[in-house]
Structures are given as C-alpha cells and as structure tokens.
Design a protein around this nucleic acid. Sequence first.
DNA 1: TGCAAGCCTGCAGACCTGCGCAGGTGTCGG
DNA 2: CCGACACCTGCGCAGGTCTGCAGGCTTGCA
Lengths: 120, 120
Amino acid sequence: MHLVPADRAGHRTIDGHRVCEAIAAIGDTARVRAWADRFALLADPGRLSLLLALHTTGPLAVTDLAVAAGMRDPAVSQALRLLRAAGVVAGERDGRVVRYRLTDPAVAEVLEHGVLGRPE
Amino acid sequence: MHLVPADRAGHRTIDGHRVCEAIAAIGDTARVRAWADRFALLADPGRLSLLLALHTTGPLAVTDLAVAAGMRDPAVSQALRLLRAAGVVAGERDGRVVRYRLTDPAVAEVLEHGVLGRPE
DNA sequence: TGCAAGCCTGCAGACCTGCGCAGGTGTCGG
DNA sequence: CCGACACCTGCGCAGGTCTGCAGGCTTGCA
C-alpha cells in the first residue's frame, strides 16, 4: 500500500519524509470522506440535540423530539430523514407514532467519548 | 438545574417523562452549539485530512500539508486560518516556514477514538 | 363515519461554504 | 540588489444547506 510517490512528482516539499508519513496518516480518501460526512451530520445543533436525546433516553417519537429540542416537527422530520438515509437512526412505527432510535455505533461512541465524556 | 417545565407549556407530548429526560440529555444549548461548531470543522474532507496528518505526524509546514492532502496552498491556508481561529491548531514560524500542530485535546481524542480507532 | 392527532413532503427563499485565481508580504540565497 | 520561495489575502463563482409555510396522508378515537 504505497500510494505515496505518484502524487509527489513535480511538487516541492519541505520535508519529504514527513509528507510520506502524513499521506499514510490520511489514508484512504473514501474513509476520510465517509467520516467527514458523518461529522457533517453532527455539525447542526438541531441534529446534534436529537442524537443526544436519542442516545441517552432511547426511542422517542417525533413530537417529543420536537418539544425536547425546541424545534418544529417538519424540521425534526427532515433532520430524521437525513439521519435515516445515512443509517444513523431507524424508526419503528407503533400505531400512529414513530419511535426513532440510534443505530450507528460509531456515532454513539463519538457522542459518548466526545460530547458527554467531557465536563468542560 | 431544571429548565424543563418552562418550554413544555402549551405543547402536546406523547411521553412527558421521556421528554424531560431528553431535555436533560441535551443539556445546555451553548454546549451543544460549541460541539456542533467543532464537528463542523471536521466535516470537510480537506480539513479532516489536514487534522489527521497533523495529529499523527506532528508539526508540518503548509506546503507539505498541501502535497499530502492533495490541495492547493491557498485552500490549505484558508483551512488553517479557520482551524486557528477556532483554537484547534497553532502555527509556529521557523524562518520562512510556518509549522502547524494540533492544540485541541478534544479534537485529538475524537480523531483518535473515532476515525483512527476503527478498522472498518 | 367524522374528526383530530402524528408525521411526512414540496416549494421557495435566504444563507453559508469551499474553491481557484490573481496578487501581496516577508524571508532566504546568490 | 534581485530572484525565488513560503505563506497569506481578497474576489467572485458554483454548489449545497437550513428554514418556514402550506398542504397531504395515515392512523386512532369518539
């Protein structure tokens, strides 16, 4: 796995050795992009609030999420649609109520270690 | 710390008890916003690549970062300006070279536990 | 059967962001 | 003194995103 030399042709570098290390650290572009997309889902205060609520409280209905996060239900619905499309949450219908829960363990761990694991 | 009852007035809820739990889980709005901003910094493939390189390789110059991340130096410069304004990285001048390093431990931990701590 | 609750969708507007290009500043070497 | 290098900045464009409002659809209860 040495994708290093190809891109370096014709580029001036200050410390070529560290550049190689850095390229190795960055790794696969697809992985970086996947994580950037994941972080983008957490980058909105509304979605982050919803995810925090779902993570610690468990399954919640759209209306309750709207009240808890101080959002309107269309906004919550759209946020949940994005999160569902990304596979981060899943909804389960119970009568006329849909209860959502967190399904992505990576996101759960980031929430736990990042947001909740720091008193600050 | 009971900011719960004020916002609930006049709102229909499915399960009021869980709403209170969720509000407590979300916690302070300022904290949520701060973390959303932090995640927004990680939400761009370019910036994320730069941070990964800085995290694992250590101090790096702008030109080397540009080569490693496959970006042009103005893009790197602008990304680093954002990151520096947020207190995530810091630059140190050495002659005509500026070497940047990661300064935010919270971001470092998220990178370690999130991006690098998962084989996938 | 009729009505209301819960949830979803579409559309329009404003907003923000990232990128490349061109040009500027400060520094090192001949 | 002059050129080359490393880095920074302003500008404009393209692209995506968040928000609010209005309306539709399914379900449950009286």
